[in-house]
């Protein structure tokens, strides 16, 4: 390995920096949107579960079915399939915005399951205690269950963060911008492995940093 190995990379650092910025943008917007969508769906899944606070077979069944169908679809295929919806909402199927939209939806359903599981893990005894105090169902759901489940919830978000970074890179296949796009266009298509490895290092750094922050946040939330 010589200096020449990174020649391609060194001559495209402006693109590299822009790609990092795009990846960070895609990932953070997708995190926020999917986090919100997933939180709503996940809380709804938990609350409408048979025998639970707002038990509702229909709502539970529909959301559960959506999550079960959409979540296992490989992202690359989902990205193609979501095209019509992208055109409707974003106006295009290409570019960073379209890709961010697709990621937010796909990740939202994954987050829903993670939120549900974090909440199911909350000690039912605590819920019973809150019921015995005369707390309303909404107060129990948000003031007790979500609050008690916050630690695992943050860990779950950290877990999904890695998935979103992964999706953002795959989005490079449809010209979505970011480090994946950069690695394909400037790297593999030109047989420039220096560029590919630079992208790889940047992605790994983002993931490690994100996980570190997530774990710290979870720890401070759980106070352990």
């Amino acid at each position: 390995m010589t200096v020449e190995f990174f020649d391609g990379f060194l001559s495209s650092t402006d693109v590299f920096v822009r790609a990092i910025g795009q990846t960070l943008l895609i990932v953070s917007v997708a995190m926020v949107v999917s986090g919100a969508v997933g939180l709503v769906l996940g809380v709804a899944l938990y609350a409408t579960r048979p025998g639970n606070l707002f038990a509702n077979r229909l709502v539970f069944g529909v959301i559960g079915l959506l999550v079960n169908v959409i979540r296992p679809i490989p992202f690359v295929i989902f990205l193609l399939a979501v095209g019509p919806l992208q055109r409707l909402v974003v106006g295009t199927t290409l570019g960073t915005e379209a890709v961010t939209f697709a990621i937010a939806i796909a990740a939202g359903f994954a987050v829903a399951r993670i939120v549900e599981q974090s909440l199911v893990g909350v000690d039912p005894g605590v819920v019973e205690a809150a019921r015995a105090m005369g707390a309303s169902r909404a107060a129990i759901l948000f003031g007790v269950v979500v609050r008690e489940g916050l630690g695992p919830l943050v860990l779950g978000y950290t877990f999904i963060f890695v998935g979103i970074v992964d999706m953002s890179a795959q989005a490079g296949l449809v010209g979505g911008g970011g480090l994946g796009d950069y690695a394909i266009q400037y790297g593999s298509q030109r047989y420039d492995w220096g560029v590919v490895y630079a992208a790889l290092v940047a992605i790994v750094a983002i993931v490690v940093l994100g996980q570190f922050l997530g774990n710290r946040l979870a720890r401070s939330v759980m106070r352990r």
Partner: peptide, 12 residues
């Protein structure tokens, strides 16, 4: 009401 496992809110 009090409980065998106390059922305290760990987040408070």
């Amino acid at each position: 009401m009090i409980f065998q496992q106390f059922n305290l809110l760990s987040s408070r």
